[in-house]
Design a protein around this nucleic acid. Structure first.
Lengths: 158, 158
DNA sequence: TAGCTGACTTTTGGTTTCCTAAGTCAGCCG
DNA sequence: CGGCTGACTTAGGAAACCAAAAGTCAGCTA
């Protein structure tokens, strides 16, 4: 671990996946927009209203999310309505759901209000509640206290 | 789902666990400081240098993290050195590790550079790689596409 | 006791972020 | 064709955030 600590100064943030993820989703409105997208929100003004941000901010963030490939913009039309654009999660965006779920879980546990969780996440197939968990390749559930950080291939000198 | 969508306007962000979690950790430097804490960084200037933020910002964020109960500040002393303060993850802070792990995993998958992941997270007991996963109470692994969001107790009218 | 070091705080000034309010534009509806 | 609505964009200003440089303070160490 000391080795790792000593080397870590060299990469700092440039070669850190967390830093790169945070670069994309590391602000309030982006995470909340992704939450909305995962709940099925599709329309521009629903995003803005439900997230509680102004239209200019919603427009800018959504545009950025599309540019980053987390959302896809596609035309759709409801009967009797004109064509509109909807925003839908791409696979890249969907794969942030574990992170989002872990955050919600933490919020439920540590920052909940009296009313209890406002949403329940279920497995479509069986209806059971879904949780974010850490698990190792040997199949163990791993409590946060039992994880160990080691240098990876990107850190070791070539 | 339509029911849920209709009701969702009423709670917006006030009663959302994700929003509350984001309130605490929803910015770049806070997440990165927690990453450092999980790597074992303890001292003030190591935090600042490794995260790549200035000292005033580090001081403010660390203070906020202590106030929010994610970090604990405690005196410690290395042999031959004077007493110093270290910052250590509390249980509340530790339980954010699944979220942090999920973010890293996403970054590794979608925003990695050529060198590969810079850290490897292992299960202390067995050395196997640790991943963040979604799982339901029935024991199934749940891919992001198979989750279903329903209103929870905090959303339903009393 | 004078110096040094770690851990801050203060000050200054620039950049980013956000909101409000108002304007634009396209297409269905009457 | 004229109004309306959804989806934005523009303009203007307040607030938050940030880095750099300098100052403070406490307690070893010489």
């Amino acid at each position: 671990m000391t080795d790792l600590l000593a080397q870590r100064d060299s990469w700092q943030n440039s070669n850190c996946s967390i830093a790169r993820a945070v670069e994309v989703v590391g602000n309030r409105s982006t995470l909340l927009l992704l939450r909305e997208a995962s709940f099925g929100t599709r329309r521009f003004d629903d995003f803005a209203r439900r997230v509680g941000i102004s239209e200019p901010v919603a427009a800018a963030r959504l545009k950025q999310l599309v540019a980053d490939g987390l959302l896809e913009r596609r035309p759709y039309r409801e009967p009797g309505q004109r064509t509109r654009d909807e925003y839908q999660l791409t696979r890249k965006g969907q794969e942030l759901l574990p992170a989002l779920t872990a955050l919600r879980q933490w919020g439920d546990a540590w920052a909940a209000d009296d009313a209890g969780p406002s949403v329940r996440v279920e497995h479509q197939d069986c209806g059971a509640a879904v949780h974010a968990r850490l698990r190792c390749d040997a199949g163990h559930d791993v409590p946060p206290a039992e994880i160990d950080v080691r240098p990876g291939p990107g850190l070791l000198p070539a």
